[in-house]
Write a protein that binds this DNA or RNA. Structure first.
Lengths: 223, 223
DNA sequence: CGGGGCCCTATTGTATACAATTTGCCCTCG
DNA sequence: CGAGGGCAAATTGTATACAATAGGGCCCCG
């Protein structure tokens, strides 16, 4: 995070994901420059990045707005992830080294730890869970050795972090996710592309429902 | 193309696709600013767009380079297109209006015309064919009503235009493409998502081989 | 009282000057 | 003669001033 562009990207992204702005709200570059503490030039670059991740959009007259995601858009997002990460897993299965698979296992151990029953602070756990989860999926994507795939998936993995602090997830759901990852590792060890793709597919489809349910719960009762 | 950014994007893109620069060659922002006839600011925006389409890349120290695509990358690109455009076709099948299907048919009539046997100027035909082909695929993508899909596919459809003036394509291959489109229209008329996906899949896979063959022919004998 | 057009302001787009970083060269020293 | 370090030039990153453009409000006229 050395350059001002990156700072801007990071700060604005946090600002958005923290839910400081309502969907549909209009933002000015200058305002965002204040938020990020840099001039408009790097802000414009950051906004472009956020646009391509669809965290921001432009009105017909090039004003910056926060898009609101409907259930359909979220469904579509997970469907695309299912296809693309399934493909990534398939490729990764024949390209991962033993050491890399070990690394995946290590990351997933963190996931299990984060949802272990003897752990008290649910809040911190979810954050850690989500972080490890992201790293796991990134590692798989990287292992597919496809620059395009990396670039495309980067624009799909963003999630409103409203849900990152969430008590909305059931421990059971999180545990199931960790078990999915276990099976994925097993598929990798077996170097079985089709198994890997299938596991990744069902994993993400379940994740969609967990996410969608949490989201609608939040909308019903927005504490 | 009203803004300087767009001008820059367009001119630099043409510059690249016309094959004026060798893969691996390094470019400076200033040089590109000369090419486009604008200052560095809009050039930087254009370069970002071209990066995201992978027509340009950055070295570890943020210098601009022209990537070289191997056979594997092209294969991967068409594989991704097959997945994503297949999905787009599937969605489009249940969303296209009759009028839109008529429009697709009209575009495809142009394709047929461009490769009609009584037409003499092969050169002009290929350009027209490729243009109509692009419009056809864009229309299908649009009809899927998924902003993400539109954005993702935009970064996959670029092709080195070395092959846009090409005598490398056989008339037979082009005719087959047009027939594929005919069948796709039929699938749309039947409102059959699975049929549409399957046709789009085989269409793109064949297109890959046609493209790859033309490319390797060009490499063997680079007139 | 409602609609349409014009002006003023808010916002985005572009150029340019300057700062920070990287590169490649050259010089020195082992 | 090769390796390493530091310096100068080339290149990218950032800020700021100015230009172009879109939007909203106000006034005038019907």
């Amino acid at each position: 995070m050395s350059t001002a562009s990156d700072t801007a990207y990071d700060k604005i992204r946090r600002h958005l994901l923290a839910g400081k702005v309502q969907p549909g709200e209009r933002l000015t570059e200058e305002h965002l420059a204040d938020v990020a503490g840099v001039s408009r030039t790097p802000v414009r670059e950051a906004v472009q990045r956020l646009e391509r991740e669809l965290l921001l959009m432009r009105t017909p007259s090039n004003r910056i707005v926060v898009p609101d995601w409907g259930e359909d858009e979220i469904d579509e997002m997970f469907t695309l992830r299912q296809m693309l990460e399934g493909h990534a897993a398939e490729r990764a299965a024949t390209r991962l080294s033993d050491a890399q698979i070990d690394e995946l296992e290590r990351i997933n151990a963190e996931l299990h730890e984060a949802v272990a029953p003897d752990n008290e602070q649910r809040q911190a756990d979810v954050a850690r869970f989500l972080d490890a989860n992201r790293r796991f999926h990134e590692a798989v994507t990287q292992a597919a050795h496809s620059p395009r795939l990396v670039q495309i998936l980067a624009m799909l993995v963003e999630q409103p972090v409203v849900l990152h602090t969430a008590r909305e997830y059931s421990v059971q759901d999180l545990k199931q996710s960790a078990r999915d990852h276990d099976e994925l590792v097993a598929a990798f060890r077996a170097r079985d592309p089709h198994w890997a793709r299938a596991v990744m597919g069902s994993h993400l489809r379940r994740a969609f429902h967990v996410f969608a349910d949490a989201m609608s719960a939040l909308k019903r009762d927005p504490k």
